[in-house]
Amino acid sequence: MLKKKMISLTAAVLLAASLSPLCFSSSPVWAKDYERLVVMSDVHYGSKEHKDLAKRARVMANKEKAVQDINSWKDVDLCIFTGDMVELSAGDNEYRLARKLTDKVTQPKTFIAGNHEVVYSETPAVKGKLQPADPYERMEHIGEYKANYGPLYYAKNMGNYLLLFLSPDEIEGHIINNKPYAVELSEAELTWLKAELKANRNKPTLIFCHTPLEGTILPDNSENEPRNFTAPAKEIKDILSQNPQVLVWASGHTHTPPTDASFDNAVNHYAGTSVLDVYNPAWEGDQIWTNSFYLYSDKIVIRTYSHENHQWLTRFDRTISLPASLTASNTKPAA
């Protein structure tokens, strides 16, 4: 009889525990020692695919499933859309469509603009090629972008880290080989960037920009042309060379997937600097991958996730160790 009473008492305790509020909490029950960033690049929602409607529907469904995955991750501190949220070019209809996806992200999120938000005209494409926007159109596009997604460039603190966000804002855009630079930063934005870095010399810094840095992709890659790198290239290299606290430049634009040799390659290290350009895949193929950045007090860990197979691609795991001068215990306000 005593044994039966003990069993009943144990069952009652287990039942009470299962009904406690802790079991229904949506927050992690472990103590995190990192901040996690998830980069979502070139989502192009609905899809740039317009001819094959079955493929278009499949690609759009994949994008929605990837958002569901990301929403289910309980340790995410910030989702970062690194440009090209719209399908092809700016305009009310394009933004309404793009926001059907971006508004579904329930995690904290932030945005920067890509070339498809700013540099192309809304006039019909010629032989399948989008046409450059004139300065007046660019100003209109920038206004539309700000109304939907916020400022073009800004800073955020994340734990001991500084995050800087850059977007194309040069109104008088330059043309090279009959095409506009995908991302061109104005003098005002460059001045702001220099000031932010000067004020935060002791903070490990990650920069998010739609386009990569010149020379960080393999020479034989089809995207290796000057217009696809952040301009003005010389000024940006000078700034980064003078600021060794910048450890990461996270880019999109080139749609570089993990299956491409340029995705994780020694060439991604920006020559003469401490910067690693991390290429983030587009959401436009049959598969979707995302990179997550784990910011620890002494290192940055970069991991790549396959949303098709629901698994980490461990062969692409990368770790950037912070110099002793940039670790949390040694960080002091800049003079």
Rank of each mutant, 00 (worst) to 15 (best):
G46W: 07
K48L: 00
E49V: 15
K51I: 14
D52H: 11
K55V: 10
R56K: 04
A57F: 05
V59E: 13
M60G: 05
A61F: 12
A61G: 11
A61P: 01
N62I: 01
E64D: 12
E64Q: 15
V67T: 12
V67H: 05
S72M: 01
W73P: 01
D75I: 06
D75K: 00
V76I: 14
V76W: 01
V76Y: 10
C79R: 01
C79A: 12
I80C: 10
I80E: 09
F81G: 02
F81A: 10
T82D: 15
M85P: 03
V86N: 09
L88M: 06
G91N: 03
G91M: 01
E94C: 07
Y95P: 02
R99D: 07
R99C: 08
T102R: 05
Q107K: 14
Q107Y: 00
Q107A: 13
P108H: 09
I112V: 14
G114H: 02
N115H: 08
H116G: 02
H116T: 08
E117P: 07
V118C: 07
V119Y: 03
E122F: 14
A125C: 07
A125G: 11
G128I: 04
A133K: 07
A133Y: 08
D134H: 10
Y136S: 15
E137G: 09
E137Q: 14
R138M: 05
M139D: 13
I142G: 09
Y149S: 09
Y149A: 08
P151A: 11
P151R: 08
L152I: 11
L152M: 00
A155H: 04
N157K: 03
N157Y: 00
G159F: 01
G159M: 07
N160T: 05
L162V: 13
L166K: 04
S167W: 05
P168N: 10
E170D: 06
G173M: 13
G173P: 06
H174G: 12
H174N: 06
